[in-house]
Design a protein around this nucleic acid. Structure first.
Lengths: 233, 233
DNA sequence: AAGAATTATTGATCTAACGCAATTCCACAA
DNA sequence: TTGTGGAATTGCGTTAGATCAATAATTCTT
């Protein structure tokens, strides 16, 4: 196996500065947390974590983009999040049954850094602020999941798709104009609809002049209308 | 306001023994956690916590039964859990934005004990085991929410209703024969279907001899079939 | 640049599940 | 015992969204 080093990963120091969680650690604690830390570069399509396998590391991406998704029935996935650099993940399994409860796959070439959960646990025991921050991290995810539950079960397709577009714009691309890194299939997996429905409703949005659409290129031209649709659809 | 005292709440000691979380605390820490702790008796139908209001306490029920639910759009609820004695709740808001993110309402007369989150936070900082247990508690909820997401979005009605019956039998009534404390409407809110559909499918289950049904009285006579239905339905 | 292999689009059915309305049932109060 | 109001049941028309199938557009390979 060839060890590739990404351009963005200069050293753990810079990486830690970017993470609100690791900011809380002292130099001494950082040394513990970063012990045995290693980086792996994944090609597009490759699995970074696979649902059901043994969970031993928190993971942070330093370059590239990935998708986090639940593998459900009949090979049907539910896409939970797009993961971009410096978002920490690893999931609830790290503190329960030591299994990953979702899969993560690279959407583009992605370098991921693996931090041993044993080391995290160690510093968690010496640093109450860090422990509290971890709990907060978990709690915020719970809140997101509540919102997701409501969006997916109570809104109809237009509202759900509006939610996805707003999410992509605000959380991932930080712009109202962006080029999708994901397919229609994956948009469908985020909003619990088929790829055909995703295509159809995107086109409807275009015809209603809510967005401009050119296959992968999207521009949100009527944001207020999108937010309005998000409130039920 | 008249202060009523429930029969089950003799003192905090017994209550703490029942809770796997409070078991981890020393006498000294228990004293801190239990300071200002108070009990309130609710009538059936009354709200114990209301979604959106300020969150300041963890809550534990010592008698009765309650429902925890998300208030969605158009007054449509999503029932998350039935709460029975000694299940701790309060939710993700206690460690994030100090808001309750769900409502809890009494199904029968219910006595609930309120523990100040400030006190919890205090002992959490002195007792790493307790902090870890809280994180585990939050993580387990996340895992449950993942399963809920898959059940509600990918299974069809028969599978979802099977999930609810299994949940009620295993987690709430601890028996394959039980008398429902909840209505058809509420069964629907647990499985994301209308009350009419809940009625219809219960009847179908009865005709297929999977359950015996007498309005509120249910007997799961073919458990294997239920589990099988749960795997897709 | 040609060909293969994914993706995306579009139209035509099909169906699971909803919404409504009309009874019926049941618990509880007077 | 008789109302009374909420819960449960049942039937029926409607529809949101899925599925299937065929074509067009991109992207990847070599």
């Amino acid at each position: 196996m060839i060890k590739r080093k990404s351009d963005t990963c200069i050293n753990c120091q810079t990486c830690n500065l970017r993470s609100p969680l690791f900011n809380l650690l002292s130099q001494e604690e950082l040394k513990i947390a970063n012990a045995n830390r290693f980086e792996v570069v994944f090609n597009a399509g490759e699995n970074i974590v696979k649902q059901g396998t043994s969970a031993s590391h928190m993971i942070i991406i330093t370059s590239g983009m990935a998708k986090m998704y639940l593998e459900g029935y009949d090979r049907k996935n539910l896409l939970l999040e797009i993961i971009i650099p410096w978002k920490l993940f690893g999931g609830p399994g790290l503190f329960t049954d030591y299994r990953y409860h979702y899969s993560v796959a690279a959407l583009t070439e992605t370098s991921a850094c693996f931090i041993s959960i044993e080391n995290i646990r160690k510093v968690m025991r010496t640093n109450p602020d860090f422990a509290e921050a971890l709990l907060k991290h978990c709690s915020l995810n719970s809140v997101l999941n509540f919102e997701r539950l409501i969006s997916l079960t109570q809104k109809q397709m237009h509202g759900r798709l509006a939610d996805v577009l707003i999410y992509l714009s605000e959380k991932i691309y930080n712009s109202r104009i962006f080029d999708l890194t994901i397919t229609r299939q994956e948009i469908g997996e985020m909003s619990n609809m088929t790829k055909e429905s995703a295509t159809r409703i995107l086109k409807e949005f275009e015809q209603a002049e809510i967005i401009k659409l050119e296959t992968k290129h999207i521009e949100l031209t009527n944001y207020e209308k999108l937010q309005q649709l998000s409130l039920k659809g």
